[in-house]
Design a protein around this nucleic acid. Sequence first.
RNA 1: GUCCCCAUCGUCUAGUUUGGCUUAGGACACCGCCCUUUCAAGGCGGCGACACCGGUUCAAAUCCGGUUGGGGACGCCA
Length: 488
Amino acid sequence: MIRMRFAPSPTGMLHVGNARTALFNWLWARKNNGKFILRIEDTDMERSKSKWEKAILDDLRWLGLDWDEGPDIGGDYGRYRQSERLDLYHEYASQLVKDDLAYPCYCTPEELGQKRKEQLSRKQPLKYDGYCSQLTNRGRNLFKAQGRKPTLRFRVDGDKLCFKDLVKGEMEFVLGNLGDFIIMRSDGWPTYNLAAVIDDSLMEITHIIRGDDHLSNTPKQILLYKALKLYAPVFVHIPLICDMHNKPLSKRYWYSSIVQYRQEGYLPEALVNYLALLGWSPKNGREIMGIDELIDSFALEDISGSAAVFDIKKATWVNSEYIKKLKPDDLMSACMPYLKSADEYAQSLTELEPEQLKNMLAAIAPGLKTLKDVSNEAVPYLIDSIEGILDTQSPSFSEKDIEVLKAFNEKLVSADIFRAEDLKIILKQLKKETGASGRGLYLPIRLGITGEPHGPELFELLPLLGKKGCIERLKQTFNWLDSNAAKV
RNA sequence: GUCCCCAUCGUCUAGUUUGGCUUAGGACACCGCCCUUUCAAGGCGGCGACACCGGUUCAAAUCCGGUUGGGGACGCCA
């Protein structure tokens, strides 16, 4: 049974990088009919907040990355918050002390900082000098008498350590430049390395897919697995995601946290699709892939070894592809929240007849990059009054344009029915009578009816507005022109 | 300072394991054309890369060494 995990620390929003890590783990679990476990690594009491845990869970759900075991639903492998597993860490840590594989260290953070500074200025490798590893009982008692609370350090022993990483290949680390490291804090809480090792082993995690910033932690962890006689998982270190300056993605950019994508109108399936393409690509070269296809073609051997730059333009393109594929009903319900939270124009759309709104949205869908665009794209075509738009857009009409508009208005008034075919005939006649064609014909009509120079196909739009709607809008435009004579 | 990772178009990448099939393929972006008697959408096309130096070889993007560049780790963060 393949058991994968995602183990975020609740110290902030779910980021794009973490989301991709979660996704890869999830994909591998689902592909192998394995389990996907969510574990909260909240051993940093200072920074961990339950509101962040909640936010992360929300984002994962939104992305569609569901878990089989986790803090909210439990599971057969015990508690899923590290803060609730303290007894386990103590148990294993005291075992290490008993075996003399770990020892109490009384150095204070200040002293350690000082030592580090000196090593740096002497251009020496940065590592713990092992001072407390030599401590006699008397020395220990002396520190205790001072009221110092010790940390626990793991004794690093041996000359080198090898392991295989599924992406990076055979790894070899020289242990000589690794100092004894802290596994238990002076306040009795474990550090990341200890807690993660114990949990991954007890939870029988088979593969760990994580960012390659953890690559140099891995030797420490393997040392711990060995010392604790615990089973170690397979390591898969994936490259980081960078911004356009080639720095690991930071919160500096709005698009680095997942929650932003909800607000900006990205579809979760689209984001998942794009994220999957960052550092991985399928053998067949396909790019737009639904979740099932993603699961089907995902393979660890196709993960790239080099860092990827997050390209918001491509992410947006993927999103627009997904919007185009939406069925009218789904499109409408997907757009609704964005219409409701937009300005009053957009809100008035939500009161339209569902059928009419659906048709309108379908007409503008091909031009949407994000769902949020819907308010900008749709409003000008759907509201009854375009006076506000005319005031803000202030389109300019030539004399010829106005002539065309007036002629168009007359044709409309005398038109029997008004469908796309009727419109075509009307325009044909208009062209003949006014001599206007192409841009000279279409643009004034678009402006006169919508106030905007861009928008969906007129042949779809105008029939939806209806004869009455078009005439009403033209009337508004004529009025606007009269009161803005200077602009004509 | 020490250790580790990475290096193909502006970006994501294919090709690298098993050297020739590659005038290095695809996608985004950009540009142009076509379609639609408009914009967008759509179709077609263009631009555009093997970081550098050496070695091995009949042959190297592909193997080896070095250089440079970028990133990571060295924390009582994860």
